[in-house]
């Protein structure tokens, strides 16, 4: 009895296997079945390297060349250049508007207009206070959200990974790329505002918020400080965008996610009952750059802000790394 059954069973199995083998070539043409994923690859003991082929040698400059090509791609992409142009145009608009408003009557001038009209350098800080709210974060979110998801969406991620660069390195390159872009955005705003200000308003000693007056060089130094601070903030936001970018293959998803997070934070800040939450929100820290305009410079607030930026960067990058190094790349 048992013998008979076994025979029939195995016979059926053989038949099934035969049909499956027979059917296999008839799968949808053009799609290659995924025989091996990252998980199966990890479970398998690594094969010994085939003799004769030397292990790939990593040339020291490889990382920087990869970063260079990445930067070249970023700064040649029309979309990114357009965003730089837009953020660069805002200080010009603000400057011209303030010039036209401030030229008329001296009596109704508010503090901001008065300070800009009195000194060209103040236009930089006024522009920053507008742009850090939304426009600069959006520009950084676009590049950051596009970093991994964009490659995945375009189907180029697997080719990038085919090069012996390693995922961690690729992630590092992508993040540094966003950091450079973030600083570029900040610097463009600062330079555009500085040039506009110098053309439209008188240069000279800078009046700080505390009412003290400092020489022009000191004012330029303070602009440099604020650029450093805001750039670090943009880098932290970029890290968040890169992290979101590793979770999706749709770049718009990652970009929108980051922008929505920024907007939600701004809304939360407006609710007085949620004030205890505010120190932990990333966008709430962008505007603390005005600490450089106080006398003495409020280093405590700046350092607090930088540590918040650092915390967001470390957390986001570690999440991105954990996700990206363990991800199956299917596109």
């Amino acid at each position: 009895m048992s013998t008979a059954e076994t025979t029939t069973g195995s016979a059926a199995e053989t038949a099934q296997t035969a049909t499956r083998t027979a059917r296999q070539p008839r799968r949808t043409p053009g799609l290659v079945p995924v025989a091996e994923t990252l998980s199966t690859a990890e479970r398998r003991t690594p094969e010994p390297a085939p003799p004769g082929l030397p292990p790939p040698v990593r040339r020291p400059g490889a990382f920087w060349r990869l970063l260079g090509s990445e930067l070249g791609l970023t700064f040649r992409r029309p979309r990114n250049l357009a965003m730089l142009a837009v953020v660069g145009a805002v200080p010009i608009l603000v400057g011209v508007a303030l010039r036209m408003v401030g030229g008329g009557d001296d009596d109704g001038m508010g503090g901001m207009i008065a300070s800009v009209a009195g000194n060209s350098l103040m236009l930089t800080f006024v522009s920053f206070s507008f742009l850090t709210l939304l426009l600069m974060p959006v520009a950084v979110a676009v590049v950051g959200g596009d970093s991994i998801a964009g490659e995945a969406g375009a189907g180029t991620l697997r080719y990038l990974l085919a090069a012996p660069a390693g995922r961690t390195r690729l992630l590092a390159v992508k993040f540094l790329n966003v950091v450079v872009y973030g600083y570029a955005v900040t610097a463009v705003v600062a330079l555009s505002a500085l040039v506009t200000g110098l053309l439209l308003f008188p240069a000279g000693d800078v009046t700080l918020l505390s009412g003290t007056t400092v020489p022009l060089t000191d004012g330029l130094l303070r602009i440099a400080l604020s650029v450093g601070y805001i750039g670090a903030g943009m880098a932290a936001l970029g890290a968040v965008a890169v992290a979101l970018s590793t979770f999706t293959e749709v770049p718009v998803g990652a970009i929108a996610g980051t922008v929505v997070a920024v907007v939600v934070c701004q809304v939360l800040r407006a609710i007085p009952d949620l004030a205890p939450l505010e120190p932990y929100l990333l966008p709430a820290r962008f505007t603390s750059f005005d600490s450089v305009l106080r006398d003495p410079i409020d280093t405590g607030t700046l350092l607090d802000g930088l540590s918040v930026f650092g915390a967001y960067t470390v957390l986001s990058l570690s999440v991105a790394w954990a996700r990206f190094t363990g991800k199956d790349i299917t596109s």
């Binding site: 503090g111 901001m112 918020l209 505390s210 009412g211 106080r294």
Partner: peptide, 21 residues
């Protein structure tokens, strides 16, 4: 200190300044 503004009261002896930026 407030966002992009600051109010100061400086008292030195028998005179004082109040500055609102």
């Amino acid at each position: 200190p407030t966002q992009m503004n600051e109010t100061n009261l400086i008292v030195d002896g028998d005179q004082a300044w109040y500055f609102d930026s």
